[in-house]
Nucleic acid binder design. Structure first.
Lengths: 236, 236
DNA sequence: ACAAAAGTGTTTTAGATACACCCATGC
DNA sequence: GCATGGGTGTATCTAAAACACTTTTGT
């Protein structure tokens, strides 16, 4: 009865999607893996990866995600949302990942089941600095993702599929815009996330129905054209 | 670096939601736990639980869900969909579950992270027989769920929240209706799942837009009133 | 005066909803 | 012939989409 009490490594991976307003694009926060060993017998090619690591004993999954993100990137204060778990035994068996696993894991051949989290943030608010086994942290345009460690390309793809639905949740825009913003900024956000374009009159008509926009009676400053009105979201 | 290589028990839990057409309700398949030991020193109250158990070594999560469901209920051939993972360390620490864990787990105090699956089925197609540590298998109306083992009430609640979205996926109705069905049967299904009522003319107008319904030119037999036309879904 | 984006309404179209009567069958 | 659910169409309302010109500012 107690025969099949196997245990598995369980990890969390974090997909941090950053809205880059200036350049009108979505980016994802990746780490560059630290080379495990200078004197490795194998050729080691540092890889990009989602920030992720093993869950500790007596630590909830949500807490693990927050901790791991902090350890690898020093990013704190984000509300991460769990979206899917990946447990294919082959996900940690590829040649490209062997060397890294050998150095960082006491049982490098063991299967790792990973629980994935994502969130949307305003990129400019994030100050990321590498930590732990991250040599570097980088932002990559989600339209040009390099090959990643393990099955992280798959995880990222699924995260992106999911996150488009979230833009319609009122919270999302609130998180991705500054306190005061113009209607054009709001529209740009939706256009970037949904990868489309809207007629501005129709867009505002629609958005006003399910969002409480407060006109501030202020105007943009220092802009090279007719300054736009500033709005804020109604504080709940 | 290799300091935090903890391993965890990982389990899968299966939420099998059955459409009971005759009685117009949704039910969920539960097991009744087998009493661990006749001579237990503690009072043991058998609990209802979702079918679930630990994942084996080198077994994918999807495969584990299929296997576990079969072992506990002998139900096979379902396409299970992963929907969420639960890893709160306290989820296996409640008094009510202690006795059971002590008997069935080599490390009864260890945290168990569980990956949850669900599917929608036509209840009458399911022949469930208890196996392994299931003393019994029962269907319960999802509107009257008893207290369950571990955090299974929470898991079930989240599954039900999720599954309502799936009814609009064409596949779902296909799975829950017989090959030949009347428009009223189709409408009943939607009404039960969404817990609402529709005007039949409006419902059919809408459903015909995104579903290929084929009128079979046959009629119901042996019915106590005007027999209805039979339809089928277009085979893809 | 020019360039650049802000600001602003109306018309058209499509989809959703509301609604009521006759029909075919078994008993 | 009656009870039961099957079958059917139109009118109204609401939401979405298409569409163009004037205004305000900085240079």
């Amino acid at each position: 009865m107690k025969n099949n009490s196997f245990k598995n490594h369980v990890s969390v991976d974090c997909v941090i999607l950053g809205y880059n307003e200036k350049e009108n694009k979505m980016e994802v926060l990746l780490i560059e893996q630290k080379e495990p060993s200078k004197n490795s017998t194998h050729l080691y090619v540092p890889q990009f990866a989602l920030p992720g690591d093993l869950v500790n004993e007596e630590e909830s999954l949500d807490a693990a995600a927050v901790r791991v993100l902090k350890e690898l990137t020093h990013v704190v204060g984000l509300r991460l949302r769990q979206f899917f778990s990946f447990g294919d035994p082959m996900r940690v068996k590829q040649e490209k990942d062997k060397e890294w696993l050998k150095f960082y894991r006491s049982d490098p051949d063991a299967r790792v089941i990973t629980v994935s989290y994502y969130t949307l943030v305003r990129k400019e608010f994030i100050i990321a600095e590498p930590g732990s086994f991250a040599k570097n942290v980088v932002w990559k345009n989600i339209k040009r993702i390099p090959p990643l460690a393990f099955d992280h390309n798959l995880i990222l793809k699924k995260a992106i599929e999911d996150f488009r639905y979230r833009i319609y949740e009122n919270e999302t825009a609130r998180q991705l815009l500054p306190k005061k913003f113009t209607l054009r900024q709001l529209q740009n956000l939706y256009e970037v996330v949904l990868n489309t374009e809207f007629d501005k009159r129709n867009f505002i008509k629609r958005i006003k129905k399910d969002t409480d926009l407060i006109p501030l009676g202020e105007k943009q400053m220092g802009v090279l054209r007719k300054p736009a009105q500033l709005f804020s979201f109604k504080t709940k």
